[in-house]
Structure formats: C-alpha cells, structure tokens
C-alpha cells in the first residue's frame, strides 16, 4: 500500500465531501470506489482528519454490507437472494458458482483475486428472477448451468 498516494486521494475526497461526520459514508464509499475496498491504512488517517475515533469509523464501516475491508476479486458476482429470486431458485446458482470457484459463505474471494461471489439483498430486478450481477451488469433468468457458462466466459477474458 502506497500510503502517500492513499493520503493524497483521501485528501481529494475529503475536499469534495467535507470532514464533518455527516460525510462519513460518502467518504468511505469514495475511498472504496478508488480501491475496491477500504484499506486499513485509511482508518487512522480519516480518524485524524475527521476527528472521530478509529473504532467509531471501523464500526460504521462494518455496519454496512457494502463496505469491504478486504480486497475484492476482479469480477464481483452477486447472486440476488431477494424473495422473487429465492422463490425461483437462486440458491442452486449460488451453490454452483461457489462450488466451481472453491468459495463458501466465509471465503468469498478466490486467492488469485479474480472472483468474488456473494449474495445481495433484492436488486429490484424481480421481473428477471433469478438474477445475477457481474460488476453490476445484470444477468437475468439464470440457472446453475447458465452460471457455469458465464464463469467460463469470464475466465476467458482474464
């Protein structure tokens, strides 16, 4: 981690959103957009700049599902587990993806940092159930076999 660069980027983000507490979530989101996760080194820096304890910022970051404290894969695959998708059998899709990538509920990112597989609360694409997204692109009406196909295609682009 190049902390000098991290601080510079964080400074720019703070300049945009402000250092008041109310900016906390937007600031964390912006940092995460930059790094795809929240590097640990950003916490003491934000603590100093925003005048809030590190433990507090850690508490905010761990409260919200979207913040990741670990690097994510190049492809982030999200399987929707909303009601509609669930009723139309989204779990077997998740199982298949995890099986093929050797992932689980606890280990969500492959060691080569190529894939992350996670579930997501309803995407609001219930008409397309079951839905899967890859880096926020929606793939509708999935099946376990289609998921395997998708993985194959993604692997080819690596």
């Amino acid at each position: 981690m190049n902390t000098q660069e991290l601080y510079q980027k964080t400074d720019a983000i703070l300049a945009r959103y402000g250092t008041e507490e109310r900016s906390m979530i937007a600031v964390l989101q912006a940092v995460q957009e930059e790094y795809a996760y929240l590097p640990r080194e950003v916490f003491p820096y934000l603590s100093e700049r925003m005048g809030l304890s590190e433990a507090h910022i850690y508490g905010v970051a761990t409260f919200y599902e979207n913040f990741s404290l670990e690097p994510k894969g190049k492809y982030v695959i999200k399987v929707c587990d909303g009601t509609a998708c669930h009723v139309r059998k989204s779990l077997p899709i998740l199982d298949r993806l995890r099986e093929e990538l050797g992932l689980s509920a606890d280990k969500i990112t492959t060691d080569d940092l190529n894939f992350t597989v996670q579930t997501v609360a309803c995407l609001g694409a219930c008409g397309l159930a079951p839905a899967v997204t890859v880096n926020d692109k929606v793939y509708p009406a999935m099946t376990p076999d289609k998921a395997s196909e998708l993985l194959k295609t993604l692997k080819e682009t690596l």
């Binding site: 433990a55 850690y58 508490g59 761990t62 409260f63």
Partner: peptide, 13 residues
C-alpha cells in the same frame, strides 16, 4: 462493530 447477531464491541480492527 458489525451488526445484528454478529455485532460485537471492539477496538478498531
């Protein structure tokens, strides 16, 4: 830190 049934009281990290 964390939330729901995973909630804990914790130092940063």
């Amino acid at each position: 830190a964390h939330r729901g049934s995973k909630m804990t009281i914790s130092t940063a990290f």
